[in-house]
């Protein structure tokens, strides 16, 4: 699921307009962004199951997607954000980064370790919603609808009122443009993920 993660960032931005959207978008995918070089170098691996379609994978991301590893990454990201944009933004960004692990916990098969490197061979976590693709896709659609609509409403609200903002029409136009591009990318990312494109 990557559309679902982006949708969370859109929803958080709607409620916290002071935090830059780019940081939330990057933050919500940070675990997977760090996963990419580790995957390329063979430190973390992935094996497909079934026909290798939507969600048909067991991901051995034992460092980036371990509970403690994800918490550590979230805390570091939160500290950096807090240093740049203030303490509240730091808490928000740390939460957004960790939200990735929470959503993955819901959809992943039992492949999420508790400690980095699966230290201690503790039980692996994952509720496995990916085993029911229709339910998993429905969850992503729901997240997109909530995140997209909250972002659209908050963007328009940021344009202010026509009688108070001299540049109201320009601001409103930009808010609509930003919302439309956001909605299109959310839908496109879900479609490509669902069809296994890329």
């Amino acid at each position: 699921m990557f559309a679902g993660h982006f949708a969370v960032a859109a929803a958080v931005k709607a409620k916290n307009p002071q935090v830059p959207l780019w940081s939330l978008m990057l933050g919500t995918q940070l675990l997977d962004v760090i996963f990419v070089p580790l995957f390329v170098s063979g430190v973390e691996t992935m094996e497909t199951v079934g026909s290798a379609g939507y969600g048909e994978a067991v991901i051995h991301a034992d460092y980036t997607h371990s509970l403690m590893g994800a918490l550590l990454i979230a805390i570091v990201a939160g500290i950096l954000a807090g240093y740049r944009w203030g303490r509240r933004a730091g808490y928000i960004l740390a939460s957004v980064v960790f939200s990735h692990w929470i959503l993955d916990l819901v959809v992943h098969r039992r492949d999420l370790p508790i400690l980095p490197g699966n230290l201690g061979d503790l039980p692996l976590l994952g509720f496995g919603l990916w085993q029911w693709p229709a339910a998993s896709i429905a969850l992503e659609v729901l997240l997109i609808l909530i995140g997209g609509s909250l972002y659209f409403r908050s963007s328009l609200a940021r344009a202010g009122r026509a009688d108070l903002n001299p540049g109201y029409h320009q601001t409103k136009g930009r808010a609509i443009m930003a919302s439309c591009v956001m909605a299109a990318l959310l839908v496109l990312s879900l479609v490509t993920d669902t069809l296994g494109i890329g």
Binding site: P20, R84, G198
Partner: peptide
């Protein structure tokens, strides 16, 4: 591949478009 593309698009394109909303109101964008 599509993952990297979407991270870039959301981070750069959406981030830039969103920041323009505040710029048009004369607000400081960090």
């Amino acid at each position: 591949m599509s993952f990297i593309l979407f991270v870039l698009l959301f981070t750069v394109l959406c981030g830039w478009l969103d920041a323009r909303i505040d710029v048009s109101q004369g607000k400081d964008v960090k």
